[in-house]
Design a protein around this nucleic acid. Structure first.
Length: 768
DNA sequence: TAACACTTGTTTTTT
DNA sequence: ACAAGTGTTA
């Protein structure tokens, strides 16, 4: 332990060693925040505090996982495993499941993701016969979410004059009614949305002093990462748990608070001291990540914000290059310039592609860089877009699981009642829905006994409905007997999903089939690893409660080697790269047009830019385009005001690029040829076929060489080929056999041993 | 009821 | 430019 503390600087060490009271660690970008957290936990363990007395809360599963493995390195796997460490949602869903009946839920409640919520809200708006132009499901959902995160229950909402007045002004006076109905429906269905996991925890603690007391006693020390991003609901949970012993350490950086749109309240960190007057404040100000120029540039930018905790972030690293500012004629040219510069970095600086990141404000901007990188044969990976569990086919299968576990789950029911199509259409579902509302029972209960609810359906429909009921009942019975993997196989087969999915020979269909296969693999892995570690929780509910809280942020980066990273600035928080490109620095894009109305919004955008710049270790390049396609239309743009916020002393404005472009009088021809090219290449890249994603990487990585995984590639496979498989790695093809309609390859893998691959589905590249 | 064409909105970020 | 939602037709 002595030598562990020796690895810290004075400020870090002080923050680690102070454990007797509340502390706030203000951690500047790149100042070793995670290091302090992990060492502090290791230190607590070394001091003799048992791991299950420690509660450590993070925002992403990834952060929790990484911290856990680092702690395991310091104190051993056994102790690390017993820590209560995870995301807010994860930890408190676990606590809720254990105490659900105390707040009127069943412990097998299922979790709505945001699209489930939105669907339900849409249905309610329709049922109330409201105009969905005035009551836009998306914005209603946002407001309900904000209310929940502020711990305003439907009852409180209806009583709150200010909110009601606001809603009247905003021309949706019945929002409180929608909120009430929504919450009733969720409850009746025994479902919780993301916000419920926090709000219901607060309700649980509020109404059950004994439970709160229990956890207060258990969690002897509480740590919270990214405290600047907590909302009121999270803040209150933490505060209540720490209220007695005050042994709490929160870590964060007010300058990196970028989630207010989700209810995060920067005041939580700014006012920590008033909650705990005796709190000690530690400031980590030495940046170990970036060059002096980058740190200084970022400092000069963030100084333009009004409210912040004073800190003096500095770097003792080399001075480094100034930040390059590049102006491009069009978004297309911006892509070209950036990928050319990346190619040069590789050749001249011997940079690895994996050391390079392109960061943008919105996900849509990724496309143009995909094209230009592809043209330059630069491998890349995109984080963003649809996550594995959001894919339609996966959500459909998961919905079966959800309904089996929790027959009340309305969304799950609606998704699968006619999937695969079994002749039960909207008309019938609406009738069921009506009967359910009238009789205050679930859709499932109506289905179980249509006559009892006087369902007006013909005998054919009744028969189909009964077949569905019988099938699902059988699954529910089996669920008591077999593990998650076995049940999933049964479900896929009996429901007709496998027939539907595997018979579809279109590329899209095959991609779907493979995704379903990946889900099965994941289930298999889930069950086997749990059995190996002696964990008996291997039924469907255990799997569900784990995957419902996974997000695309939780990607395990096994495949990061030699690929340029493309992601939004938001998802880049906490990461670092040698070379960073911040692109699309244009007014109304970054800062976003929506955020500009309020000062708070603009300042948050500025912090977002601050986060972007401070990801860079060695070089940072910012670029903007003078014109850009937006919603299919060409718009002209001007450079972001944020560029003027950075002290010019730290910038290197690329005169050559500027003059080149302004001197190009024949830009028309230049432009048109660009446009033509941009229309040819994407045709292939934008086909509806999306390559199946690998579940083990939790999915949302799209790789540039994915087109090589089309079946055509598989057809060329010969005996003796060396292939690179996404899961099994490198291996040699021993033989290829025709098996009915399918071709199989037997492959000897270097590390994974001998496997047979179904060529129709296998994901690999031929190496030689 | 299902498949298809048409219309509409969406675009800030995501646990 | 695209996807999702809606309406029309068979």
């Amino acid at each position: 332990m002595e030598n562990i503390l020796d690895q810290l600087n004075t400020a870090q060490r002080q923050a680690v060693e102070y454990c007797t009271g509340p502390s706030l660690v203000i951690a500047g970008a790149g100042s070793g925040k995670t290091r302090v957290l992990t060492y502090k936990i290791a230190y607590l363990l070394e001091q003799g505090l048992p791991p299950y007395y420690i509660l450590a809360l993070t925002f992403t599963n990834k952060a929790a996982r990484e911290m856990k493995s680092r702690i395991a390195e310091l104190v051993g796997e056994k102790k690390a495993k017993k820590l209560w460490m995870g995301t807010f949602h994860h930890i408190f869903s676990r606590i809720l499941r254990g105490n659900a009946e105390r707040i009127g839920y069943d412990s097998n409640f299922t979790i709505f993701d945001s699209s489930d919520s939105k669907n339900l809200i849409r249905i309610i708006i329709k049922e109330m016969k409201l105009d969905d132009k005035q009551y836009r499901p998306g914005s209603i959902q946002g407001q309900i979410s904000r209310a929940k995160n502020s711990l305003i229950t439907p009852g409180m909402y209806a009583q709150n004059k200010e909110l009601i007045e606001y809603d009247q002004m905003a021309k949706h006076p019945l929002l409180f009614e929608i909120y009430r109905t929504y919450q009733n429906r969720l409850h009746a269905a025994n479902c919780m949305d993301f916000d419920d996991l926090l709000m219901q925890t607060n309700i649980l603690f509020r109404d059950n002093e004994d439970i709160l007391e229990n956890y207060r006693n258990q969690f002897q020390y509480i740590l919270v990462d990214e405290y600047q991003d907590t909302n009121f609901s999270q803040h209150l949970i933490v505060k209540q748990l720490a209220d007695k012993h005050h042994r709490i350490c929160v870590v964060g950086d007010d300058a990196q608070s970028i989630y207010s749109f989700r209810g995060a309240n920067i005041d939580n960190i700014l006012k920590f001291k008033s909650n705990y007057p005796e709190a000690k404040i530690f400031k980590l100000e030495q940046n170990y990540r970036s060059t002096q120029n980058i740190v200084n540039a970022a400092n000069s930018l963030i100084k333009k914000n009004s409210e912040q905790i004073f800190k003096d972030v500095y770097s003792n690293n080399e001075e480094g290059d100034k930040i390059d500012v590049i102006s491009a004629f069009s978004d297309f040219e911006e892509g070209l310039i950036v990928s050319n510069k990346i190619a040069r970095l590789r050749i001249e600086e011997h940079a690895s592609f994996s050391d390079i990141a392109i960061l943008y404000r919105t996900n849509t901007q990724s496309r143009i860089f995909e094209e230009s990188l592809r043209k330059n044969n630069i491998p890349y990976q995109i984080y963003g877009g649809l996550s594995f569990y959001q894919r339609k086919e996966i959500k459909d299968v998961i919905s079966y699981f959800r309904l089996i576990v929790n027959p009340g789950d309305e969304e799950a029911f609606r998704r699968i009642i006619n999937y695969p199509t079994r002749g039960i259409g909207d008309t019938t579902v609406n009738k069921i829905g009506l009967a359910a509302t009238e009789n205050r029972v679930s859709l499932w209960e109506v289905t179980s006994n249509p006559e009892a609810f006087k369902l007006n359906i013909n005998s054919g429909t009744a028969k189909k409905l009964n077949a569905f009921y019988t099938m699902m009942s059988n699954f529910m019975e089996q669920n008591k007997l077999v593990n998650a993997y076995e049940l999933a196989q049964l479900v896929i087969k009996e429901s007709g999903i496998s027939k539907e999915a595997y018979d579809d020979m279109t590329p899209e269909g095959m991609s779907r089939a493979q995704n379903i296969q990946e889900l099965l693999n994941a289930l298999n892995e889930f069950v086997t690893t749990r059995i190996e570690t002696g964990d008996q929780d291997i039924s469907l509910i255990d799997f569900l409660s784990e995957v419902s809280l996974l997000t695309d942020q939780d990607t395990e980066n096994e495949e990061t080697k030699e690929k340029v990273t493309l992601m939004t600035v938001h998802s880049a928080k906490g990461l670092e790269f040698e070379h960073v490109f911040v692109v699309g620095m244009e007014e109304d894009l970054f800062p976003s047009a929506m955020a500009k109305n309020e000062l708070r919004g603009l300042e948050e955008e500025r912090r977002l830019f601050y986060v972007a710049i401070t990801r860079a270790k060695k070089t940072c390049t910012v670029s903007y385009a003078k014109s850009r396609f937006k919603n299919g239309q060409l718009n002209s743009c001007r450079e972001s005001q944020f560029l003027n916020d950075i002290d010019i002393a730290f910038l290197n404005i690329d005169e050559k690029t500027l003059s080149n472009i302004s001197n190009t009088q024949n830009t028309d021809g230049f432009w048109k040829s660009m446009e033509r090219q941009s229309k040819i290449t994407p045709a292939q890249t934008r086909s509806k076929y999306s390559p199946p994603k690998q579940l083990t990487n939790i999915s949302r990585i799209q790789t540039s060489n994915s087109s090589a995984q089309l079946p055509d590639e598989a057809k060329q496979l010969k005996e003796g080929n060396i292939i690179e498989h996404e899961r099994f790695g490198r291996g040699k093809v021993i033989s290829i056999e025709q098996d009915g309609n399918n071709k199989r390859a037997f492959v000897e893998f270097e590390s994974a041993g001998r496997k047979q691959l179904l060529l129709k589905f296998a994901k690999f590249n031929i190496v030689e």
